[in-house]
Design a protein around this nucleic acid. Structure first.
Length: 211
DNA sequence: CGCCAGGGCCTCA
DNA sequence: TGAGGCCATGGC
């Protein structure tokens, strides 16, 4: 597991995922940047990050990227701004529900909110709140199934538990590893994988079978 | 034109 | 508790 991480880190370098907006030009507070990460986590559900970036840009330009602004806006107003991220009516509702949540941020509380499932909750906890929850996504399952390290029919929680058991409990490693997994999934371990050029081909039984 | 992207909810067995 | 349908835009 750590070997895979180190290989990917060497191959791709640091990914620096979140926070996205450059904090040089405006003095956004850390709570602003936290909220922005959580918004991104919701908007990117089953959606390419490019489409999400446009939506976030629209929110910023309308001065709407804050809990208060989203909480006080109508669903339609939010929906219009985030249209490019897809599923925009659902996501507008999800954003409003999250922006209206005033309890403490725990995994259990996040999961109790409509629109926040395990991956979104863990993304928020890890990237916005620096808590050691490993984020499992479709790429993670696909890649580690092909690597032969899981069977592929495990539940989200089972896969998460495996990673958290195998890896040192280190937030920075969790953040970087998940980002690297996404990068490998996008570049090589696609639905139709490009095994020939994959940096993990020497470790991967799947790559050997598929020439 | 078809396929898919940094999922989650609902329904129905 | 798990499979299948649904949500929707934009890039290639």
């Amino acid at each position: 597991m750590l070997k895979v991480y180190n290989k990917l880190l060497k191959e791709f370098g640091k990914q620096h995922w979140w926070p996205v907006t450059n904090k040089t030009e405006d003095q956004r507070s850390s709570s602003d940047s936290r909220f922005e990460i959580c918004v991104g986590a919701i908007l990117t559900q089953n959606t390419s990050w490019q489409n999400v970036e446009k939506a976030i840009k629209n929110l910023i330009e309308s001065n709407m990227l804050s809990k208060e602004a989203i909480r006080n806006a109508t669903i339609n107003k939010v929906a219009k701004l985030i249209r490019s991220s897809g599923y925009y009516k659902q996501k507008a509702k999800k954003l409003k529900i999250f922006a209206s949540f005033s309890g403490s941020i725990s995994r259990e509380n996040l999961l109790s909110l409509w629109g926040i499932g395990p991956e979104t909750a863990d993304s928020m906890l890890l990237y916005a709140y620096n808590k050691p929850y490993f984020v499992v996504d479709a790429y993670t399952k696909r890649i580690f199934t092909r690597l032969g390290m899981i069977k592929g029919d495990e539940s989200y929680e089972e896969v998460r538990a495996l990673f958290e058991k195998k890896l040192p409990k280190d937030v920075e490693i969790y953040k970087e590893f998940h980002a690297l997994i996404v990068e490998l999934g996008k570049r090589y371990c696609k639905k139709e994988p490009d095994c020939k050029n994959c940096p993990l081909k020497s470790d991967c039984g799947h790559a050997i079978k598929h020439k």
